[in-house]
Every structure is written in C-alpha cells, then in structure tokens.
C-alpha cells in the first residue's frame, strides 16, 4: 500500500470509528496503520464527532439521584478493585472507608485500617454469634463461622456505599479459600421485600475476568437490619480479592446490574 493510500485508509477507519465504531479486524488494521504512520493522537476524529454531538444535542437532562448513587458505587468498587491489585504501601492511615478517588495515594490506609477493623470485627462477630447461637435458623452459618474463627480466619470488613439502602450498614466476611466456604454477617442494611428485591453477594476472583464475579449467594435482611449468610460459591474461587453486595431481582442475577450497597477488599 502506498503512503497516500495508507493515509486515506487511516482517515476512513478513523471516521468510521468516530461515527459507528469498528469491527475487531478493522480496529486491528487501524492500530497497525497508525503505528506505521507514527500518528501520535488517535482521537482527533472522535473528539471532532464528540464536539459536533455536543453542538447538535439538546439541553442536558439532570441525572437521576438513583443513577448517580449507582455510578458512585461502581466507582467505589472500581477503586477498591484497583487497590486490591496494587502493592501495599504502608505509610499513613487515611479515611475509614473507600472513596471514589483512585490510585496509590488512597491505598495506603488499607493495611492499617484492615488490621484495626479485623480486631474490632472479631469482637463484634463473637458477640453477635453468641447472641444468635440459640436461633436454629442461623445454626448452619454460625457453625461455619465459629469453625472458621477457630481456625484463625480473619474477618474482612465491608463498607457501605452511598446507596440509600446502606447508609447505616456494615458487614464482615469470614472466607476460607482452602475449604471454599465462608460466612457473611450483615448489620444495619435496610430490610428488603423478597417479592421485589433480594441482596446478592459477589466474589471477585483475581484469576477470573473482573466483569464476571462469582455468585456468592442470595439473601434477605430482616427488620433488625441483620443477616447471617453462608457462602458456598458454585465454582472454585482461587484468589478472592473483593466482596460486594448488590441489590437484585428476586432469586438473584447471573450478571448483576451492580447496584452495590456493600463492598470490601481482602487484605
């Protein structure tokens, strides 16, 4: 292909991408051509189309509060996921819950915070388990939890997002990768109507595509805002890095809409 034909083809592909996207083959071709042509900025036509879109678009609608809350939760989860993948940097103690601001500077608090939360959670965990020990409905998860505690499995703290259902909520998870079982203990989460929605736990496995977390089970929250949930994932979880609780239709989802109410990383 001549240089002129190269250039013409690059323009075609850049215009097509800006207007209707490219197939995988066309994307690969464009990247190769751009590399050959030493084009540094690949975005010129996309920016041009974006500017025209802004010019042609009607006035902005206001984003609904519920959508904003979902986006904020997604940013929290993305931040926590990145933090879980970043090397630990123990320099200072920061805020006690994840914020949307990403990157290494916000990862620093996680080590110390996790240790403090683990200690506090162990006390809370033991107290609540003792209180629940006479309730036959919680026997199975309690037994699992007690067994895990006896084995020295440390609780993992989950923090609430900005979702209105979770403003007072917190949770701990005991997870044993060897036996592939665990238990989730929830406090202060809004009661759900099981005919309309249920809560669902998701486990993000570092060895899997982060877009497809493992289903950790569906559960309901009672009037007192508490739930004790056994965790028995349907597939092996090789390296759990993050746990999240979402709101789903009754019976749960295979692919979540990710309305996240609780999220926490495994130290």
């Amino acid at each position: 292909m001549t240089n002129a034909r190269h250039h013409e083809r690059i323009l075609e592909l850049q215009c097509d991408r800006a207007l209707e996207g490219l197939s995988a083959d066309d994307s690969a071709e464009m990247l190769a051509l751009l590399q050959d042509a030493r084009v540094r900025n690949h975005d010129a036509f996309d920016l041009c189309a974006a500017a025209l879109d802004l010019a042609l678009s009607p006035a902005c609608e206001e984003m609904p509060a519920s959508v904003r809350a979902r986006c904020a939760a997604a940013l929290d989860a993305a931040c926590a996921l990145e933090a879980s993948a970043a090397p630990p940097v123990l320099a200072s103690i920061g805020p006690a819950r994840p914020t949307a601001a990403p990157r290494a500077s916000n990862v620093r608090w996680l080590g110390f915070a996790a240790a403090a939360i683990a200690l506090a959670s162990a006390c809370v965990w033991a107290t609540i388990l003792w209180q629940r020990s006479t309730d036959p409905r919680t026997r199975s998860p309690r037994e699992v939890a007690m067994e895990l505690q006896r084995q020295g499995v440390a609780p993992i703290a989950l923090d609430h997002t900005e979702d209105p259902l979770a403003t007072q909520a917190s949770a701990e998870i005991l997870w044993d990768p060897t036996s592939q079982q665990g238990c989730l203990l929830v406090h202060g989460l809004e009661r759900n109507d099981p005919t309309k929605t249920q809560y669902q736990l998701w486990i993000f496995d570092k060895t899997r595509d982060e877009r497809f977390p493992v289903d950790g089970g569906v559960f309901d929250v009672a009037d007192n805002g508490e739930a004790v949930v056994p965790i028995r994932p349907p597939v092996p979880v090789r390296d759990a890095s993050l746990f999240a609780v979402t709101v789903e239709p009754p019976g749960g989802s295979v692919v979540s809409d990710r309305r996240i109410v609780l999220v926490g990383k495994r130290g």
Binding site: E61, P64, V67, R68, N106
Partner: peptide
C-alpha cells in the same frame, strides 16, 4: 482524578453526570 485526589471522581460525576446521562 488521574492524580488520585480524594473526592475528584465524585466531583466528576456531579459535573458531567447530566451530560453523560443525556447522551
């Protein structure tokens, strides 16, 4: 946001939420 400034991501959400939602 890129520098990891606390609160910047949600400020971005507030500032551009309407634009993105409209699109």
């Amino acid at each position: 946001v890129a520098a990891g400034e606390p609160g910047a991501a949600k400020e971005c959400l507030d500032r551009f939420g309407g634009l993105v939602w409209s699109l």
